[in-house]
C-alpha cells in the first residue's frame, strides 16, 4: 500500500517522495536525484494545518478499516 506522496523537486524537477506521517513529525525528504542535494521539510508555520489534516485522514482510514 502506497503511503507516500510524490512531489517534483523545485530544483532539478526530479522526484521527492514524501511520507506525510513522517513529514508532520519533522521528517526531512531528499531528492531522488543523486546529483541533487536538495531536501525538503515542513516549515514550522504549517505544522498545525498539516497535522490536523493527517489526523482527519487517519480517522478516515480507521473508518475504512471498520467498513472492511
Amino acid at each position: 500500500m502506497q503511503n507516500y506522496s510524490e512531489i517534483q523537486c523545485p530544483s532539478c524537477s526530479g522526484k521527492i517522495l514524501i511520507d506525510a506521517k513522517l513529514l508532520i513529525q519533522g521528517g526531512n525528504f531528499s531528492c531522488s536525484n543523486q546529483s541533487c542535494d536538495v531536501s525538503v521539510s515542513l516549515s514550522n508555520s504549517s505544522y498545525q494545518v498539516a497535522g490536523n489534516a493527517m489526523r482527519e485522514f487517519e480517522t478516515l482510514k480507521q473508518n475504512h478499516t471498520l467498513i472492511q
Binding site: 542535494d37 536538495v38 525538503v40 504549517s46 494545518v49 489534516a53
Partner: peptide
C-alpha cells in the same frame, strides 16, 4: 487549495 509551507534546504 489550502497551502502548506515547506522548507527546501540546499547545501
Amino acid at each position: 487549495p489550502i497551502m502548506i509551507n515547506m522548507t527546501l534546504t540546499r547545501s
